[in-house]
Design a protein around this nucleic acid. Structure first.
Lengths: 338, 338
DNA sequence: ATGAAAGCGCTAACAA
DNA sequence: TTGTTAGCGCTTTCAT
């Protein structure tokens, strides 16, 4: 059985309040401080955060619900986030819901029972019903990367429309007119935004959009492979393809390799995320890069601020929109130079 | 304020014990069961796991301490592990210690205070001092991927020596004699084992080892880039290189691209882990693949068994050693066919 | 099958 | 500054 404050009290002959005061930064006479520290040492005492949490109604723990841990975009965000949270004494319980609405709902309920002090969620279910009950507790929720309908809470987004528009325009500047896009599922917010950007770029230049150049994948590697194969098969006129998340980018590169297509001579490409992967491609891939670390840090700061840590708390909900950047590689051919 | 069992008791006119019994699978009269369920619904009651944890001295939570979340080997293991644990009602608190001994120690102390029911650790500090205090609590510890000196506890390892030996032998069978190796830090167990395998293969064939062909990296991408550059510069005779973890493999591929080396014509290569990345390389990379999902699942089962869930508990500590496999690509040239 | 009451380890209000 | 005490929400005897 682990030692308790009572044990320390008995050992030192002091009262419980003194010991508690010692642990919570109160004033304790030097002599007693010594005694307490000796007792802690000998008894191997460690504070019981469970008991403390019950009493204070605060667990110093943040719940994080994401669609896939095993996804660089998510894991990089978490890394940045955890760093900030931990440095403020907060732990994180991470729940990977496998892009499954039911698991997501279960995860939130689970975290509710665990009495986490707040939830950070990259939502699968954009209706937000899975968060309703937690929201009623009055504890803060911060949403990452996707908008949610029926819930007003802080969120950190990426300017996906502009990201896509910029990428497609860049291809157009290089003389491309028949540009394929491998985009995410229709019902996912980021996918919708990226597709909007694709349309916007076309509209701006007066280039008509060809439906056959749009492929809806599912944000996983195999979808990228499949998407590339289909686009190539159906569109002999296509000179470039824009792939809109990392997993599908990897998939598209796999597709290009396996079909023996020469990049960028036969096909130009702009991918998404993961600079290191882009460097490992030959030729080096041009990509749209999202500020994952910054997202993580911002999200952490936001929830901390709602918890009364750090920056003062704003009253109304805050939505932050971060910008992406294009990292130049050699995967886009300039057709103007022909 | 969230509803409590007391609220339900008041609402239903029943005693606390009955409500508790309801939640813990006891016998409750049908009529009362109905009443309780109604009250739960109306009050939006959710069990308070903090209070339950204090009372039962079990938090149904496992702490996981790993060197880098943002590392595919780790994140895949965690994914497999979490699946199993969650399906048995256990949560996981993941601590990414950034390959830092001090952070690792802090993480374990933190988890101790949180009163997790067990710890799973891929240790940075192989002396194991960071685990001593937790070990005294009598709660189970399971070690992943590395051996620890002064602590007897269950562990799941990979047969790294054989993995490396097989890979190097495969290169030798293809006629390679001057084989470079990009290996991990000297002090890391897995790196030592993989280097042992490299030596063993040479000894078996009577081929002398050239010190200049051994590069010690640090298991991160940049180390792979640097390692490849150095090996190539120092060893014009080198025809093949074996890279011993995923991050450095990616780095080595980056190096090959950036130096404009043709693979496998000028240089053959065997990488490590991440089949999808291997497929995305051109030509497809031949790799040693570790059974990450299986490691995660085994680890989870082991700690559950120590916690009295599932399989019966064995008395003495168990060490499991899993085998790797070579996934064939086209990055190794057969020099015999010349 | 149900109720009353003690107590898990801690914090905090109050008294000394 | 320090000690006493109540109580956070739950489980678990022990009665009934």
């Amino acid at each position: 059985m682990a030692a308790t404050m009572k044990d320390i009290a008995r050992r030192t002959g002091l009262g419980l309040a003194t010991i508690s005061s010692y642990f919570n930064g109160g004033n304790v006479r030097e002599k007693n401080r010594k005694k307490i520290e000796e007792a802690i040492e000998e008894l191997h005492y460690e504070v019981n955060e469970v008991a403390r949490g019950l009493k204070t109604n605060a667990t110093k723990t943040i719940g994080v619900v994401i669609p896939e841990l095993n996804n660089v975009f998510c894991s990089e965000i978490i890394t940045g986030m955890e760093d900030v949270l931990r440095s403020h004494g907060y732990a994180t319980i991470i729940c990977d819901c496998r892009t499954d609405r039911n698991l997501e709902k279960e995860a939130v309920e689970f975290l509710t029972r665990k009495r986490v002090d707040g939830i950070i969620n990259m939502p699968v279910d954009v209706s937000g019903t899975h968060l309703k009950a937690f929201d009623r507790t009055g504890k803060p929720i911060v949403i990452i990367d996707r908008k949610i309908q029926g819930l007003s809470c802080d969120s950190v987004l990426v300017d996906n429309e502009r990201a896509a528009e910029d990428a497609v325009e860049f291809l157009m500047e290089n003389g491309h007119r028949n540009i394929g896009i491998i985009v995410g599922p229709q019902e996912i917010f980021t996918a919708q935004e990226r597709l909007k950007g694709y349309y916007a770029a076309h509209e701006k230049r007066g280039i008509p959009v060809q439906e056959s150049l749009i492929y809806h994948g599912d944000y996983i590697i195999q979808g990228g492979v499949k998407g590339l194969e289909e686009l190539v098969k159906k569109n002999p006129q296509m000179t470039a393809v824009f792939v809109t998340n990392y997993e599908m980018t990897m998939g598209a590169v796999i597709g290009i390799n396996e079909l023996g297509i020469h990049m960028p001579k036969e096909l130009s490409m702009i991918g998404f995320d993961n600079l290191q992967f882009a460097r490992a491609c030959s030729p080096k891939l041009t990509i749209v890069s999202q500020p994952t670390e910054a997202i993580g840090e911002k999200v952490a700061q936001m929830i901390l601020s709602r918890l009364g840590v750090g920056e003062e708390t704003e009253e109304k909900t805050v939505t932050l929109k971060l910008q992406t950047e294009i990292i130049m590689g050699k995967s886009v051919r300039n057709l103007n130079k022909m």
